[in-house]
Amino acid sequence: MQELHTYTPHSRIRRILGPLFAIACVLATFSGVVVLSILLGSVLSTGLGHQAGRPWYHLPQNAWDLGQLLLSLATKTPGESAQTTGFRVGVVSSLWLLGLVTLFAVPVGLGAAVYLEEYVRPGRFKAVVQTNIANLAGVPSIVYGILGLTLFVRGFGFKPFALGYSIWSGALTLSLLVLPVIIIAAQEAIRAVPTTYRQAALALGATRWQTVRDHVLPAALPGIMTGLILSLSRAIGETAPVLMVTQASSLLNPPRGPGDQYVPLPLEIYNYAKYPDPADQTLAAGGILLLLVLLISMNAVAIVIRNRSGRLNRN
């Protein structure tokens, strides 16, 4: 005898639960956006607000004025008071770091990703290396700072290898910090390139290198760029590891070469924000704005490159 089953559809509960879930998702999305806008709003009003005791900044009338204000903030060297000071040292230091980190980390990261995706056969070796890289991506940045101090600043105690508290040390330390993220992002992008391109290229008598150079990397470029920009933004914004590998807390003149001492922008911001004087805190907020402008322009560059390279992929 077959048992007779009845359905208990709970239609009312389901009708409520469905939209509830959707609302929860919406809230989750906007919590991030809302926090970000509050943050930006407060920085903007602190940095640009016309308030007594902060005479240096006045609310700009238009975009041109705002540009002028940021420009003077970016180009002035430290003066006697908050009104006459600027972030030239920080901007120049950070640009040096950005350039050198790009120079070190990008080729090495891409090379490692290509090797792991295109050359290594799956097996224990690959698994071990892969796990290590994934773990390195999660190591706290201050640990990289300590590593950089030992390895680059002091050269493990060997004088000839010690780079001192120079931009070299900072850039190398930050390169180590961002390498795992670059490798992992590039690997994902390379893996997403259809195998059919590789097969087609190899079947024409191409070597692996020619295949990677002309087909795999160009097709993976948008994904690689995203990872690169995220990593480089992180390198620019990091403060903790830099604290370990820089000596000066403020400099009068910007570095003139990679062997000089440096104070990157985030560290200058940190220093000004520590002072009790509201004028200094205003200055810190201005520095944050500069940092944001720098990061947003980097993202813009990434988007442009991504759109350019995606052109032929579409019909």
Binding site: Y197, Q199, A200, A203, L204, G205, A206, T207, H215, L312
Partner: peptide, 18 residues
């Protein structure tokens, strides 16, 4: 590599390069 130039291949799904 040089063998594959002399023995060409056309695949199941058309796979032109992008």
């Amino acid at each position: 590599v040089s063998l594959r130039r002399r023995v060409g291949m056309v695949f199941q799904r058309p796979n032109p390069f992008p």
